[in-house]
C-alpha cells in the first residue's frame, strides 16, 4: 500500500474488528444491503473479516418496489458470489397487507414506508444486530452515532441517552426484543469510501458512473425519470450525462451531471465537490431534522 493512504488500512482494520465483535456478541445479525456503494463496501469488509470462512450472516434488502433494475441484478450477483443468504423485506407486500398506506401525489415516496417494513423484517428474522453503512460525516444527526447503537423494543433511537463508547470496547448488551444498529464505517468519509473502492478494485453498479438518462428537475434535485414518478406541471424531461452519488429508492435519489466514467474520475469529482452527498437526497430536504426524526423511529 502507498504511504499516503495507510489510514485506509487503519479504517479497514477497525471495520473488520467491528464485524468480528458483531459475530461474537450477537446471535442473529444481518447486513442491511441497499445496493449503494457503502453497503457494497460493507460486504467487501465482511468477507475480509471472516476469511477463509464465509460471512456468517445474511444480507437484508428492504425493497421499496421502486428500484433501479440494475441494482437488483447487482444485488443478486453479489450475494451469489459471496455465498450468503439474501433476505428481502418488501414494502409492496406491506402496502398490500395494509400495514402501511402509500403516499399519494407527486411528492409520494416510499422512503418513510420502509421504516415499517424494516422493523417488521427485523422482527420476522429475530435480528439482534443490523449492520448498516451509515457514516458520521454524512449528516449532523449521524455525527453522534455510536458504532454499536442501541434500539429499544420499538426500534427507536434515543440520541440523548446513548451509551458512552470508550477505546474499542463495544457494549452490545440488550434486553429481549431490543436490537442494535452497527456502523462499521462510522469513521469513514465519502472520499475514504471512494479511495478504498479504488484501492480494493471493488465492483460497483453502473449507476455510479456517467451514463445517459432521462431526467428532470424538482426542488433543485435532478431526478431520473422512472415509471414510479408522478410529474408536476411544467416539469421538463430531458436527456443528460449523469451519475448517482448515492443510491436508494428511485423516487428520492437525485443524480448529478457528470462525465466521470472511472473510479479515478469520480474521486477527482468528489474532491472538487462543494455540496454534501446527501444534498442529492430528496428525503433529507423535508425538514432541518428530517434525518434525526426518521432515525429516532427506526430508520437506517
Amino acid at each position: 500500500m502507498s504511504a499516503n493512504n495507510d489510514y485506509l488500512t487503519f479504517l479497514e482494520n477497525e471495520a473488520i474488528y467491528v464485524f468480528r465483535e458483531v459475530a461474537a456478541q450477537f446471535a442473529r445479525p444481518v447486513i442491511l444491503f441497499s445496493g449503494g456503494k457503502d453497503s457494497i463496501v460493507l460486504v467487501h469488509l465482511a468477507k475480509k473479516a471472516f476469511y477463509p470462512a464465509r460471512i456468517p450472516f445474511p444480507l437484508l434488502h428492504i425493497d421499496t418496489g421502486h428500484n433501479f433494475p440494475e441494482i437488483l441484478d447487482f444485488r443478486d450477483e453479489l450475494a451469489r458470489e459471496a455465498g450468503v443468504e439474501l433476505l428481502v423485506g418488501s414494502v409492496q407486500e406491506a402496502i398490500d397487507k395494509g400495514r402501511v398506506k402509500e403516499e399519494t401525489g407527486p411528492y409520494a415516496s416510499r422512503n418513510t414506508l420502509q421504516i415499517v417494513t424494516l422493523l417488521d423484517a427485523l422482527k420476522t428474522y429475530q435480528v439482534d444486530a443490523a449492520i448498516g453503512g451509515g457514516r458520521r460525516d454524512e449528516e449532523k444527526a449521524r455525527a453522534k452515532e455510536r458504532f454499536f447503537s442501541h434500539r429499544d423494543a420499538f426500534g427507536q433511537w434515543d440520541p440523548k441517552n446513548q451509551r458512552p463508547e470508550l477505546w474499542n470496547l463495544f457494549n452490545g448488551k440488550k434486553h429481549p426484543g431490543e436490537h442494535f444498529r452497527v456502523f462499521p464505517l462510522s469513521n469513514w468519509t465519502e472520499l475514504d469510501v471512494w479511495t478504498y473502492i479504488a484501492r480494493e478494485k471493488i465492483q460497483l453498479p453502473p449507476l455510479y458512473f456517467s451514463h445517459s438518462r432521462q431526467v428532470f428537475w424538482r426542488d433543485k434535485v435532478l431526478y431520473g425519470d422512472t415509471p414510479f414518478m408522478v410529474h408536476l406541471p411544467g416539469e421538463e424531461i430531458f436527456e443528460a450525462q449523469v451519475r448517482f452519488r448515492t443510491i436508494g429508492d428511485a423516487t428520492c435519489t437525485g443524480a448529478i451531471f457528470s462525465e466521470a466514467t472511472t473510479i479515478q474520475d469520480v474521486i477527482e469529482e468528489v474532491i472538487a465537490f462543494r455540496t454534501t452527498e446527501r444534498g442529492t437526497r430528496g428525503d433529507d430536504k423535508r425538514s432541518e431534522s428530517a434525518m434525526e426524526d426518521r432515525k429516532r423511529v427506526g430508520y437506517f
Binding site: R136, K140, A141, P159, K160, Q162, N187, E288, S289, E292
Partner: peptide
C-alpha cells in the same frame, strides 16, 4: 447535530 441542541444552543453528546 440534534434538534434539542439547536433549540437550546447547547451540545449534548460527543460528536465526531
Amino acid at each position: 447535530g440534534l434538534r434539542a441542541e439547536r433549540e437550546q444552543k447547547i451540545t449534548i453528546d460527543v460528536a465526531y
